[in-house]
Nucleic acid binder design. Structure first.
Lengths: 149, 149
DNA sequence: TATTGTTATACTCTATAACTATA
DNA sequence: TATAGTTATAGAGTATAACAATA
């Protein structure tokens, strides 16, 4: 999406009264910036989320990874292959279940994830610099309540 | 995305500290609900946004519509065709520029948009019912500040 | 030359279904 | 029979490039 040109032309609209519309634009701006932030590392936002999750969850298998991130089994295959191709992750058969493949970061993966985390923290600071620390916390809390029962 | 199953499996993660991650899930939940809200009318969220914008902007031509909503000219064609196929919009050559096509809602389009607006208002109430009126306002303001210079 | 709308194309994201090998 | 991973496929979203008609 061409965010900048579209935003330049936005005027007052009934759409502006919908929180969903503000949410859409905020999401677009943030994902566009995150995408270009990670691109120099050869990663897309989803790869970053995968690597964080893999590092945090020893013995994680693919199905569990997909479940955590909301990615279906079939769609996970090319994503994992991308990380394998860059030798950022290892894949090994689970000793307790020979159907399952456990994922682990390689040393190279650990190192690149550190770089990525530093870039992502800077990205968040950049995108949220108009919000105080208190407002950032509140934003997270309010977002979590959207669509809750 | 399978939101429900993924959310059920989410535990504490470094990702949770990123506002972008909360934003992503909120966006997914909201868009999924908006999609099923509008589906009975034969519309997707983008069609709804197009119809609102067309109604609000007399003499609107396609390029301007795309610019307002962040949709490229080429991608707009099948979207406009969808609305034309349902006879929800008229398309007529601009008298001032014979290259340009002006869009206008038909009577049928006006009526369906009223229905859609009622459903979307209920959808927003449903998604935001855990937030007070004050919190909803604040959420909109905070979202608008994301990615601002 | 520049712009409007169109067509063609490609890549990503998401979803479903069928297949295999294990359990 | 159920589950883990894979493959195939299809629809939606987004991006670029080329073209005809008009400005």
């Amino acid at each position: 999406m061409n965010v900048s040109s579209a935003e330049a032309d936005r005027g007052a609209s009934a759409l502006d009264e919908l929180v969903g519309y503000s949410l859409r634009w905020a999401h677009n701006r943030l994902m566009a910036d995150l995408g270009s932030t990670l691109e120099p590392l050869g990663l897309r936002p989803v790869h970053f989320a995968m690597m964080v999750t893999i590092r945090e969850t020893p013995g994680l298998i693919q199905t569990a990874l997909g479940s955590i991130l909301g990615i279906q089994r079939g769609n996970l295959v090319p994503l994992v292959n991308h990380l394998l191709g860059l030798t950022l992750v290892h894949r090994l058969v689970s000793p307790s279940d020979r159907r399952a493949l456990m994922l682990r970061l390689t040393a190279e993966g650990e190192a690149l994830l550190e770089e990525a985390l530093a870039l992502v923290r800077k990205h968040e600071e950049r995108m949220l610099k108009r919000l105080s620390r208190r407002e950032q916390q509140m934003l997270g809390q309010l977002l979590a309540k959207i669509g809750e029962e």
